[in-house]
Design a protein around this nucleic acid. Structure first.
Length: 629
RNA sequence: ACGCCUGUAGCUCAGUUGGAUAGAGCAGCGGACUUCUAAUCCGCAGGUCAGAGGUUCGAAUCCUCUCAGGCGUGCCA
């Protein structure tokens, strides 16, 4: 039984955002251009970037000069010295040194702190936005569920990756078009419809008091159960034990009835279409609630019932161009070696009866998206089991329209396992998305209540609305951070116990750090504003290190957007939270309890800036912060 | 059989695309609360970067082979 993309695991920047006038971007631009220019001046053709040095003693940023030695036929130390002199001091650079073939940069920390803090207080959560060197349009397809059962943990990863990358790319300055391609047609849908017709007794989600997608999902499961019963009865009577598919497409009564429904659907039978629309609406209504809860948005929802015929014309054109060939049996095929000489075999693009396949549709939707949005990048968030499909798709697109495939990118991610093994929807070993979020929510709620009983000031006397708000935000933070911690490429095991553990690299940990920054601000009495006169008071090594950490966000956003990897943002958020927690916990470092009024103001200002930055980074992952925990 | 992906501390993961002393968290052990919110923090311990060759100033990172695991190679989606 085939699954769709999402089921198996696929399941513009405005002027105010661009670097113009942004102190943080300007500082980075200054550093980068000076480093690059110095390299070009001595004849380096492929300049390297200055990155964070391993230790503050060596420098704040640095880069090696070894790689230039051969090309320039000079000693690395000598090259480093030359580069250091050419980069020069002044502006944001306090000094430039060399050490063992490396060029090391020390930033003017007071100047940097002024720039970073002023920008944070002026621009708020947009302070690191709009850094894209080449803003363009990105079309991102994600989620792409089936309309026959509710979303599960696999979809959660897809939804979050799509949502996260969309937010990061938008923040970076791309114009993002988020597309959901819903699989709402096909034999699997007909099975569910059949089960409902046979055993649904005219119930509705409203009458049954069940969320629409869960309601319909029950009939998907019911069909499978009845089908298996029929199969085993058949096997007992006939003594033969046919393959499931063979039985479904052969003697099975249920199989015949489901196929009949598909025929009627394709012929436009009024009753069938009416039932189909009704059930799809139930499911989509359920999905909408889950998307809303997770923070997923779409600019365009496409339905396969409307797009499945797309691409036929393009395939015909490809046939005329000689890119494809018609086989003796009438099927139109591609010799896959045309895509990659290392491959061999054929890929069918039109069946011998002229109907389209999955690939045909994807060729069509890609072309439509290009025509409609003229995107610079077309991104597909789909599980890595479809790597081959997308390799072929992009190759085909390049054959049909040169250059088109190169703009495409398959964001392939690994599957989510359970401790018991792979999730199988028919075997009931799935973790339902809604159930999981409910479970996390009640765990968070319980924890808050425990703290209230223990007499914690911030939990005591919490109102019911506040309690449900807090528990939901903590639940979402826990789930999202857990999923985002992993590089998309990797598969991971979802461990329910670990996901609810609030200690360590978790969303709640980050939320807690944010809440503590807000607590300081509340105690200070007023919301801090930038005050240049306070900057010189922030001269301790830990304070300066923290400012440099704030300064890193634009680079992290850039890397994250370029590599389509939100885990870099999660890592950044955690590290920032940890730095702050360390400082906050230091009894030798009073912040709001600092007796010196000016020092107090300066420290609260820094803490507030950390809060804004933490909120910004978490926001890119769709995680909402809490003022109190 | 072939192709792609993965293999780093007891466990879960980072490692800036070839750079400086391989870093976090969890678990373990030992410490810090009449709190700036302890859902926290500090310290200790923990490594043959799967293995073997190779490339070079320099390799967890690149090339080859081997081993182990995952996923693919449909006129399914």
């Amino acid at each position: 039984m085939p699954d769709t993309r999402s089921d198996v695991a696929r399941p513009c920047a405005g002027m105010e955002d661009c670097g113009m006038g942004n102190r943080v971007h300007d500082a980075w631009t200054e550093i980068r251009t000076r480093v690059e220019r110095a390299q070009r001046d001595i004849g380096v053709t492929d300049p390297v970037e200055a990155v964070k040095a391993p230790s503050e003693d060596l420098g704040h940023l640095g880069f090696p000069a070894f790689s230039f030695a051969r090309q320039l036929r000079r000693n690395p130390n000598e090259i480093a010295g030359d580069l250091a002199a050419r980069i020069g001091t002044g502006g944001i650079l306090k000094s430039v040194t060399t050490a063992k073939g490396y060029v090391n940069l020390f930033l003017d920390e007071e100047r940097l702190a002024s720039a970073v803090l002023e920008e944070i207080f002026e621009s708020g959560d947009r302070f690191a936005a709009g850094g894209a060197a080449a803003p363009g349009t990105w079309v991102i397809e994600y989620s792409s569920p089936n309309t026959n059962k509710p979303l599960h943990l696999g979809h959660i990863r897809n939804n979050l990756l799509g949502m996260g990358i969309s937010r990061i790319a938008e923040y970076h300055g791309q114009n993002v078009v988020k597309v959901n391609l819903v699989n709402d047609r096909g034999i699997h849908i007909c099975k569910t419809m059949l089960a409902y017709r046979e055993w649904g007794e005219g119930k509705t989600p409203e009458s049954a008091g069940v969320k629409g997608d869960h309601f319909v999902g029950e009939y998907y499961v019911r069909f499978d159960k009845e089908f298996r019963k029929e199969l085993s009865e058949y096997a007992q009577q006939s003594g033969a034990k046919p393959e499931e598919d063979a039985f479904f497409n052969g003697p099975s009564r249920l199989g015949q009835a489901a196929r009949e429904l598909l025929r009627k659907w394709e012929q436009g039978d009024a009753d069938t279409l009416s039932l189909w629309r009704r059930m799809n609406d139930w499911v989509l209504g359920g999905f909408a609630r889950t998307y809303e809860r997770m923070g997923c948005r779409f600019d365009l929802t496409q339905f396969e019932s409307e797009t499945w015929r797309f691409g036929k014309q393009l395939v015909e054109e490809g046939l005329a161009m000689g890119v494809f060939a018609r086989r003796e049996d009438g099927a139109v095929v591609l010799d896959v070696a045309r895509v990659d000489p290392a491959l061999s075999g054929e890929k069918v693009l039109l069946r011998s009866d002229g109907t389209s396949v999955y690939m045909t549709q994807d060729i069509g939707t890609a072309a439509k998206r290009v025509d409609q949005f003229t995107p610079d990048r077309l991104i597909y968030v789909v599980g890595d089991e479809q790597n081959y499909h997308f390799k072929l798709l992009f190759g085909i697109l390049d054959l049909l329209r040169p250059g088109m495939g190169r703009r495409c990118h398959h964001l392939a991610y690994g599957m989510v396992r359970l401790p018991e093994g792979r999730m199988k929807s028919r075997e009931g070993t799935v973790v339902d998305a809604d159930d999981l979020m409910d479970e996390l929510n009640s765990m968070a709620r319980e924890e808050i209540l425990v703290r209230a009983r223990e007499g914690h000031a911030h939990a005591e006397g919490v109102s019911e609305t506040d309690l449900s708000d807090r528990s939901e935000k903590i639940a979402q933070a826990a789930l999202k951070f857990f999923v985002f911690r992993f590089t998309p490429r990797k598969s991971f095991e979802y461990d329910p116990k670990q996901s609810i553990d609030f200690a360590g690299q978790t969303g709640p940990y980050c939320l807690y750090a944010y809440a503590r920054t807000r607590s300081l601000v509340r105690k200070a009495g007023t919301e801090p504003r930038f005050d240049a006169g306070l900057v010189p008071l922030l001269a301790l090594p830990v304070e300066r290190a923290l400012v440099r950490q704030l300064f890193e966000l634009p680079v992290v956003v850039e890397k994250s957007a370029e590599t389509l990897d939100p885990s870099k943002i999660a890592e950044y958020a955690f590290n920032l939270a940890a730095s702050f927690a360390r400082m906050f916990n230091d009894k030798e470092y009073p912040i709001v309890t600092c007796e010196d009024a000016r020092l107090r103001q300066a420290r609260v200002m820094l803490a507030a800036a950390v809060g804004i930055t933490l909120k910004t980074a978490l926001g890119l992952l769709g995680i909402d912060v809490l003022e109190e925990m």
